[in-house]
Design a protein around this nucleic acid. Structure first.
Lengths: 158, 158
DNA sequence: GGAGTTTCCATTGACGCCCATTTTTGCCCA
DNA sequence: TGGGCAAAAATGGGCGTCAATGGAAACTCC
């Protein structure tokens, strides 16, 4: 498997460590990135995490701006400046930093959610709520697609 | 890791010394540059810092202008003319010069911010303010990209 | 001979690394 | 098909090391 799929809820121990799900670790190992690359998700209370593929996303975004331009610097600060590469210990665990935990509202449990080329880390309650909401949206969208006639159906799979 | 990522806020001691974050020192060591190459950031109250990679980027920028052109001279003066190479002591600390501290408004605490190929040194309060602003801009950009159709989403954070 | 440095050493608290234990999962065989 | 066994994953905790920091000692240059 070469992408992050499914979701897992795990505990955070007294030292603030949480095991990265074995399935995700396997993907990361293939990716070859040393440590877990993370940053606070932009528009939701979660942490984005991944390896080289995730870094490449940021590079793509930044490459829209010339070196030394004001915009470039600002964006680089917002993206790289808020990122961290968490060490993964011998048992496959990471320690989320305070800023990350704060952003996601994480206390003593976390939910890892696969999103294909990256995954997110959520506070379990918030994830359930967000999932229910998203499910509703997808249903509505699907209904809409269905009413547009047969052609719309091909795009319904996401 | 081969780039500057994340941010660290550290104290300046009574003798004006501040530890360079270990993570940044590791990148600098790999870069091979002896000492910390610094200059006042062009359009913001911060200090740009880095090693060979930063110098190379400056060269690239200057090469975009014809030799002896006015712009070239101006950029060269702004970047090279005001730069200094700070010594890094045995414990990984540097002493910011007065001009640099003045430009960035630094007193007794500094925030090191990774920008990929280089990093910046800020007065912590100013950095927080600038980060909030920049984060808003990134959100706006992402929204804009997202509305350009499904294909545009790939370059953005979620 | 002092002020300002630079180098070296000491302290402390966080974190990395290692090992033990428990829980879960997958598999084999009765 | 239902145990029961084995391997892997998750979890807990001890301890040594290193980063950050503070301060003393040696050194230079006026």
């Amino acid at each position: 498997m070469d992408r992050f799929v499914s979701n897992f809820t795990l505990r955070i121990d007294a030292k603030g460590r949480a095991s990265v799900p074995a399935a995700f670790r396997a993907v990361l190992a293939r990716d070859g990135h040393d440590g877990l690359y993370c940053y606070p998700a932009l528009d939701r209370p979660a942490v984005d995490a991944g390896g080289h593929a995730l870094l490449a996303e940021i590079d793509t975004l930044l490459d829209r701006f010339p070196a030394f331009s004001e915009e470039r610097e600002e964006f680089a600060a917002a993206l790289f400046g808020t990122s961290e590469t968490l060490k993964i210990d011998g048992e496959g665990r990471v320690m989320l930093s305070e800023p990350l935990k704060l952003h996601a509202g994480i206390a003593d449990e976390v939910t890892f959610v696969g999103l294909g080329h990256k995954f997110q880390i959520w506070e379990p309650g918030r994830f359930r709520a967000q999932l229910a909401e998203a499910t509703e949206k997808v249903r509505a969208l699907r209904k809409q697609l269905g009413s547009q006639g047969a052609r719309g159906v091909s795009g319904a799979r996401e």
